[in-house]
Design a protein around this nucleic acid. Sequence first.
DNA 1: CTTGCTATTGCAAGTAATTGCAATAGCAAG
DNA 2: CTTGCTATTGCAATTACTTGCAATAGCAAG
Lengths: 143, 143
Amino acid sequence: MRNDHPELSWLREQGYRLTPQRLAILDVLRNTHGHLNPTEIYQRVSQDIPGLTEATVYRTLNFLAEQGLVLVAHLGRGRLVYEFTEHDHHHLICRQCGDMREIDHLELKGLYKQFLNNTGYQINTIHATFFGLCPDCQKDWSP
Amino acid sequence: MRNDHPELSWLREQGYRLTPQRLAILDVLRNTHGHLNPTEIYQRVSQDIPGLTEATVYRTLNFLAEQGLVLVAHLGRGRLVYEFTEHDHHHLICRQCGDMREIDHLELKGLYKQFLNNTGYQINTIHATFFGLCPDCQKDWSP
DNA sequence: CTTGCTATTGCAAGTAATTGCAATAGCAAG
DNA sequence: CTTGCTATTGCAATTACTTGCAATAGCAAG
């Protein structure tokens, strides 16, 4: 497990502690391409940290999300998934057929600038899920 | 309770049924300014529909969200809130102090057009929560 | 108005996520 | 290296949300 990531010393400077649980959870997220739900994360991390509890996984994921190190996506129907904040992207989901595609972070850059100008807010964590109708399902829609 | 809302006949045309439960839940959301969580909705609607169960509230909220009649916002820490889709807006939350402000739907119009051009998707439901740092908290951040 | 199809509900059980509290263990300071 | 402060964990209980199934009730058609 590598400990030499910049976000780790940043966390320590804030007064947070780098526990084996946090490091292992972050490590799994860092080395996973795509989303994981809390149970999947628990199962993987348990192999490294035998005594781990699910409560800690949930708490840690909330913590990491608050710190902006991981992204939470609400994919509808109460399903939450988590993902390391490296390759920022968002989701576009078709309400009809469930088809999902990714939207690159860069597509929203202009929007961030807009927010900065209008509100002074500096966006640094966001994960949006957009619901709409894909081209195919639009046909079924109009009478 | 008024039944003469356009979305209601649309639902019926899709083969969905207008049960008293659905009408009452929609009515509460329609007449509430701001967000409600499932429990708050359950408590209010129970007064009109004594036998109502929470399961039905959850199911109905998922249903209404899928149909695009209500918006779901995930405000962090696993708490979901629901809101009628009338005055579209989104949220900008400061990760540090928790300050929250609303972003008008229109600010994202350009983005929707972009999505339509690039992917063919027609966005009709979205509720995004953006996390960032408000102007005040940005001061504490840089060393 | 009656009938029949089936979407929706209530119930109860199951799964997912949060939380209070006492014990543990990071880590900064000496 | 030791010490002390307190953030974090595990445990167990609680709350939040989902789901299978049989009974109920919209509503379209006759």
